[in-house]
Write a protein that binds this DNA or RNA. Sequence first.
DNA 1: ATAGGGTTAG
Length: 684
Amino acid sequence: MACIDQKNLQPFVSPQIFDSCKSLKLLKQSHAQILKSPSPPNPKLTIKLVASYGKLGDLDSAVLAFDQFPQYPDAFLFNSLIQAYNSNSLFRWSLEIYTQMLNSGISPNQYTFPLLVKACSSSFMLRHGTQIHGHSVKLGFSSNPFVGVSMIDMYMKNGEIESARLMFDGMLERDVVSWNALLTGYTQNGKPEEALGVYNRMRKEGVDTNFVSITNVINACSQMRFLHQGKWIHSWVFKTGFEADIIIGTALLDMYANSADLGFAKQIFEEMITKDLIAWNCLISCSAQNGLIEDSFKLFIEMQGSGLKPNGSSLAGILPAVARCGALHLGKSCHGFAIRNGLDLDEYVMTALIDVYAKSGDLIAARRLFDFIPTKSVVAWSSMIAGYGSHGFCAEALMLFEKMLASKFKPNYITYIGVLSACAHSGFVKEGREYFRRMVTQHGIIPNVQHYTCMVDMLARAGLLDEAMDLIKTMPTEPSPGIWGALLGGCKIHSHVELGKFAAERLFELNSSDPGFYVLLSNIYAAANMWSEVRKMRELMRERGLRKPAGWSSIEIGKKVHCFISHDISHADSNVIYQKLEELMEEICKAGYIPETKVVLHDVEDDVKEDMLRSHSEKLAMAYGLLKTAPGTPIRIMKNLRTCEDCHVAAKFISKVTGREIVLRDAIRFHHIKEGACTCRDYW
DNA sequence: ATAGGGTTAG
């Protein structure tokens, strides 16, 4: 009998049999069969069994199979268990198994190290990774090309570019994969020039580049917004027939979208033979980032029509567009969609929603979500900090930043933009200077134009115009339009005609076609009663075909957005709105409101001016909000341009006499107006 | 029998 069993068992237990075990049930049946066999399982079989359990995600059974084979534990067996943990993303356990391996006196082999290094790089355990690197050197495996490549990858994924480079330079044998690891590392770390340099060297040295290399070159071109070379690559890809590859297709799509050639991106998308979730997501998020909110929603729906189920990234992709238009109800319904579809715990979705809530004026909801996220990324911290800053809550922003540092998080350059702009919006000059310094000394971040813009903005608003000018002079790069714009804004607040004129001239030299700058300078002249200059500015604008964009304000009532322009009489409730406005004006005048006619308008009689101010879009929206919402509800208004000074004063009085909180989002910040005061401290 | 590099996203 025993003999027959053996015979029958022999073909049955060949290791290959597990490859066809697609289900755990089948695998367990085979496992049971082996255990019934009178002879002990052979090593090959156990290893295959452990690996198969690992692939199917049943680690308990993998360990069980591992333990059933205590006779000859060796590196092979341990490796397969480590791989089982790796493939289930249980990287700490992989290292744990390695420790057990060493403790039981088994030496790792050359196959062990890539597995361990992968575990470290995937879970950002750089310190452990460096230790493993040391072990591999000691045991003489560091010159193995597989070990080397995994090491390059680990250092690159952890931002240790120098160490990766050293590893690469020290390698004795290099093949496409090791070159690609270096190339990929540079693109992943945002160093497209270096990446292209590596690619050129590869070609010079005759390395056979493959589709991985090409994907990364496209990626690098995409980062450089270097469409010229990108197009060349595209035609090259086309010729070699790589285009059918979906990953290359997606990389191309991303490149065109990043170079603001969305039309071309769409064309590539249309031409893709199979469109997977990633390709859809890419186009959705590109549309959203280019402000095409309707397109991104349409694509989101179309994608579902084509039978694909959106994942967290799909939803996170449209959320920046939602944040941009600041429609709270839309943000909430996206949040609802996330909950209904089990995407509300997705890290990207949660983080994007923080931004949506903050930019829609609901900071409390943003903070609630922030506190809820168990493992907050740098982006989550940065969004929340920037949220507080834009609403004028600088102290809260800085407190959160300190908390972030205390929890051992490394801020990046975006975090610092949030911190510095928070200081700028609230006039925290002393703190701003200090953080600007610490950014360099403590975190090694070289300030870029955006950081300088925050600083100039901060100093100029605070009236430290000379210091702002000095800072501009010490900038390592050419001042951007944004820099001069910030200085010009400060000159407007502090009525500095000369410097304002200087800043504006620099802007006009740079061919800035933003009509806002012309209007700013014109307003500076108006405030100084220099009417002939004002007229000249108007003529200049007309000559250059620039027009001040029409201002509008919107307010959400229920699920509907109501939009107003100045003197708007198109609304169905127009009569009631003007009546309400009339009452409000009477009430706030009693409370001490005096219309700010001086700067806002000129060339008109005073009583006419008052009348014109009275029907500004902000005021119409406020009146409508007061009519349509229950007492005590905050009124959230959005304006496309900067807030008008008179409307700002009026809003403060309105908040006082009605007891309402008014949250007003203008082109660059929020005003929280409560009990007659605003978080901007009249300073914006 | 066990090992290395590639696509989207705040």
